[in-house]
Each structure stands twice: as C-alpha cells, then as structure tokens.
Amino acid sequence: MQTMINIISIVLFVVGIFFFVVGTVGLLRLPDAITRVHATTKADTLGLGLIVVGLVLMIGFNVTSLKLIFVLVFVWITNPTAAHVITKAKVNQEKRKEEKQ
C-alpha cells in the first residue's frame, strides 16, 4: 500500500516538474511580455499544485498537510490575480504612451 502511494507521489512530482520546465522555457523563449505572462502563470500554478498534492499524499493527513493545503489554496487564488494585475498594467501603460504621442 505504501509503495503504491509512493509511486503515485513520484508520478505527480514528475508531472509537476514538467510543468515548471515548460513555464520556464516559455518565459525564456516567447517574444512579448503578455505572451510570457500567458505562458508562465498557468504552468507554474499547476506545477506547484501537483507537487504539493504529491507531498500531501506522501506525508499523510495531519496538521502539516493542512498547512500545505493552505499554501496551495493561497497560491491558486493569488497567482491568477497577479497575472491579471500585471497584464492590466501593461495594457494601460501602452495606451497612455499612445495618447502622449
């Protein structure tokens, strides 16, 4: 039973680190700021979520895993909000530059 849970955890870790790698490649390779925020936000949020779910499965359900789930929910709320705020700032900045010219 413990071996089965460990295998599921390792699969979740590998998929999570894959999403982190994809987000970083998008951050390095894409041409524009808005495309970069489009690539990184979803991939990083999902990567952290999968790794934390794998850790919760690994250590069992106690107070520590409750704290881990709190981190997960917090990041799932704040990371898309941060992406929205960054994109809105970029669009408004470009609009203001066009008005000034």
Partner: peptide, 10 residues
Amino acid sequence: STDRVIAINV
C-alpha cells in the same frame, strides 16, 4: 519593466 515583474513573480 513588465518582464522583470513577471520573472520575479515566477
């Protein structure tokens, strides 16, 4: 500067 904010967020 927007690229820097995105990179620090990541």
